[in-house]
């Protein structure tokens, strides 16, 4: 069943895109940092999981419990040490966007360079739970289903936390208007740091889950950054449901093009889709229209 195959495979990879995009939308939408080194953290998490599993025989799902908190702490530090000075100095949002693009672009090279020195340029993969099961007549590895399950659970958890809790409401308030948020006694800097670190934790989660079923290498971070960006912009900046729909759409679209047309055109198809959305609706599929 080709159609079922495409839809299932597409939904799984699309779920990963949606999860990573959720992290980016927190970093960009709340902390106002356009993070070009975003995908590097995904690759770093994947490489760490690989080392833990192959070197120390730590189960990737247990690895999740090690890698994700470390990523959270590391991203908090990066925000406080590297990005707060830029936030302080920026006169307005546009200046901060350009400055953060440039600074995180430098960071991209540093992380990628370190990864290349430690791991070299070769491809990595490991075999964990690669037992085939049949779903609706199409064969899928268990690791993919586990990854999808975790992504869905974490995504729903974050969504509920942001919409139902006090801290979540504060974060969403900062996303809408950082100045007005201060007026109602929200500590904007702390909320931003928390959102940024949470974004870093989410992309690390994505890295751990993706490493269970995809082949990866040290310099493929940019590709994930671009895809997360595409999903965020397609879904509308700051719109979590938009990111989910756009992520799934991208996953299924990509898989369909790879299976039906030509695997070489996958990325091209992604960009065509993305550019088309930008032209028709610059604020994204579900973004609010600006006056």
């Amino acid at each position: 069943m080709l159609v079922v195959d495409i839809v299932l495979t597409g939904l799984i990879i699309g779920g990963m895109y949606a999860l990573t995009a959720l992290g980016l939308t927190l970093q960009y939408g709340v902390a106002r940092i356009m993070n070009l080194s975003y995908g590097e953290f995904l690759v770093a998490a994947a490489l760490s999981t690989f080392s833990l599993y192959v070197g120390l025989a730590v189960n990737p799902l247990v690895g999740l419990l090690i890698v994700v908190p470390v990523a959270f702490a590391l991203n908090w530090l990066i925000f406080e040490l590297l990005l707060v000075p830029l936030v302080r100095r920026a006169k307005n949002r546009d200046v901060l966007e350009v400055d953060s693009i440039l600074a995180t672009f430098g960071l991209l090279f540093v992380i990628q360079g370190v990864a290349l020195v430690i791991f070299g340029g070769q491809y990595f993969s490991y075999s964990y739970l690669s037992i085939p099961v049949s779903v609706l007549g199409s064969a899928l590895a268990v690791n993919r289903l586990v990854a999808l399950g975790f992504a869905a659970a974490i995504g729903i958890g974050i969504y509920l936390a942001l919409t139902r809790t006090r801290a979540g409401t504060a974060i969403r308030a900062v996303a809408v208007d950082p100045v007005a948020a201060q007026l109602v006694a929200i500590d904007v800097r702390r909320a931003s740091a928390f959102a940024y670190a949470l974004g870093g934790a989410l992309v690390a989660t994505g890295g751990v889950l993706i490493s269970m079923f995809l082949t990866f290498h040290a310099s493929m971070g940019v590709e994930f950054t671009m895809k997360a960006l595409i999903v965020v912009i397609m879904g509308g900046v700051g719109n979590m449901l938009g990111a989910l729909v756009a992520g799934l759409l991208l996953g299924v679209g990509e898989t369909a093009v790879a299976r039906l047309l030509d695997p070489g055109l996958t990325l091209a198809a992604t960009y065509v889709l993305f550019l088309a959305v930008l032209l028709v609706r610059p604020t994204g599929l579900f973004g609010r229209s600006t006056r």
Binding site: E97, M226, A268
Partner: peptide, 30 residues
Amino acid sequence: TLRLSGIYFVIFSFGLSELIRQLVTWYEVN
């Protein structure tokens, strides 16, 4: 695209470069 501003223009121009690269690669290979 020139009605896009700020970050949208940046990302569009980057996406465009990647798109052209992908299309040229595909053309050359196939």
